[in-house]
Every structure is written in structure tokens, then in C-alpha cells.
Amino acid sequence: MNSPSPQPPAPTPIAFIGGGNMARSLIGGLVARGVQGDSIRVAEPVEAARTALAADFGITTFATGAEAVDGAGVWVLAVKPQVLRQVCETLAPQAREQRPLVISIAAGITSAQIARWLGGDDGTATSIVRCMPNTPAMLGAGVTGLFATPGVDVPGRAQAEELLSSAGKTVWIDDEAKMDAVTAVSGSGPAYVFLLAEAMEEAAKHQGLPDDAARSLVLQTVLGAARMLTESDEPPAELRRRVTSPGGTTQAAIETFETGGLRELVDQAIANATERGRQLSAAND
């Protein structure tokens, strides 16, 4: 008589601390990939949000982080940077006992800070992956920069990448000091595109186009240009060159941007956003 086949081990529970938009995006991506809802836990203090999460994804929700992380092998810190220290210090005893893989999406908070807040006075750390997704993750079209501390092993890196790739592409960063630049470029980047679209739409109206036509023309242009950038092997400069005929309308516009210092303005904007990330770290230490 054949003995029954051994059952595969149950998946390690994943605990999300915070149930906001980014957490919802990641949870939705995980569920869409076949991760069972009963292996996902969320700590969310707002009762209405807990009810919605449970109804939408079939997951288990809790009012406190301590309940959610109990027995969970992966913790996703999805709260605002301003409250992360308090959250971590509350969970420190469980972190020292459970030694989870900790994934933080808090902008400007370093892995050393998280390790200290979770590890207590001796500074002992759980394995920490710091990451910065962006809002297109809510559509599964995001990009996330990730940095892993030396204590994260190969399976841990793979686990973090699998989780974050549920919301889009992932890019590993070897130097944590560059994570503030990741935040400035991609984390904040969608707002730059939205600002350009806003300005283009207003300019189109100033040229006499009806509101609905201006909006449709701008939105489809941004969408089409983004697809050309992502689906072509050519760099942005070459794609721009191909649509800029000498003496034509596009050249007139590009020369205006260049004369106005667009490149220098973008460079300074991203530098300022990067510096703001460093300031957030210092302010919350």
C-alpha cells in the first residue's frame, strides 16, 4: 500500500503593517498571482479599512501590529515615515524573537534606523529590505527600487523581489545611499509626468482647443510616448530626434524648452527631492 505523498509546507504568512493604497496594491498583486488570502495578514487601525480589505481580498485583518505579525515570517512596513519608529519599537520584542524578513516602503528611513528600532539597545537586526515603489503599482505598472542589508540571504532577496514584482518591475540598488535618488526619480516621478500633462492641457486650451479635446489629446500622447519608450530599444534622445524635424513645429517647441533651462530645472528638482529624503531620515531618527 502506497504511503500518502507528503504535503508541501504551508506558505509563510506575510504581515502588512498598514493597509493604505500601496499595501492594497501589493496585496492585490499577490492574490492575483495565486497567494492564498489566509496567508496574508494586515494590521490597520481604521475599522472601515479593515472591513474593506477583508471583503476585497479574503485576507485576515487586525487592529494592531502585534496581532498581525505573530508567527509571520515576512513583515511589510507600509506606514508613513513619521510613525515608523513608534511602530517598530512596539514590535521590537517580537522582531527579536521571530527574526522575520522585514520589507520597508517608508521613504527616507534607512535600514540602520529600522534595525535599531526593531533590535533594541543591542542593535541586533532582522533581515531588512528597503524599497521604494511608486503609485503606478496600483495598476500593476509600477517600478520598485530595492536595497538589501547584508543579512538578507538569497531566498530572502528572492522573496522580497517576488512580493514587489507583483506591482511591476523591480531594480536592485547596491548602495543604500542611492535610495534617496530612487525616491526622487521614480517614487516622486509620476507627479512630474502629471505636472507636464497638466501644463500641456492648459496650453492646449489657451490655443483654443475645447476642454475635452485638449484632455484626450494630451492623455493619449503621454500614453503613446510612454509605450514607445518602454517598448523600443532606443534611448529617449534618439526617439526625440526622430520626431524633431529641422525647422519644424517640434523643433520650435524643443528649442523653447532648452532655452528655458528645462534640463537644469529637472536636475535641480530631482536633487532637491533627493535631499528631502535625507532630511526625512534625520528628522525621524
Rank of each mutant, 00 (worst) to 15 (best):
P4E: 08
P6W: 03
P9W: 02
A10I: 07
I14Q: 03
A15F: 02
I17R: 03
I17Y: 02
I17G: 02
A32P: 06
R33A: 15
Q36W: 03
Q36F: 04
E44D: 10
A48V: 09
A49E: 04
A52G: 09
D56N: 15
T60C: 09
A63Q: 11
G65E: 08
A68M: 10
G71M: 06
A72N: 01
V74K: 00
L77C: 05
L77Y: 05
A78C: 07
K80D: 04
P81S: 11
V83A: 08
V87T: 10
P93L: 15
E97C: 04
R99H: 10
P100K: 15
P100S: 12
I103Y: 09
I109Q: 01
D121M: 07
A125G: 13
T126E: 07
S127L: 01
V129T: 06
M138R: 12
A148D: 09
P150I: 08
G151Y: 07
G151F: 07
P155V: 14
Q159I: 03
E162P: 00
L163T: 00
L164N: 00
S165D: 02
S165T: 12
S166A: 15
D175S: 06
K178G: 00
M179L: 11
S186T: 15
G187M: 04
A191L: 08
Y192A: 10
Y192R: 08
L196A: 15
E201F: 03
A204V: 04
G208A: 09
G208C: 08
A213I: 15
V218R: 13
V218F: 05
L219T: 12
T221N: 06
L223K: 10
G224W: 08
D233G: 09
P236R: 11
P236E: 09
S245Y: 07
P246Y: 08
T249L: 10
T249S: 14
E255H: 07
E258K: 05
T259M: 06
R263G: 12
R263W: 13
E264V: 13
D267I: 07
A269R: 04
T274K: 12
R276M: 09
G277C: 13
G277D: 08
R278S: 09
R278G: 04
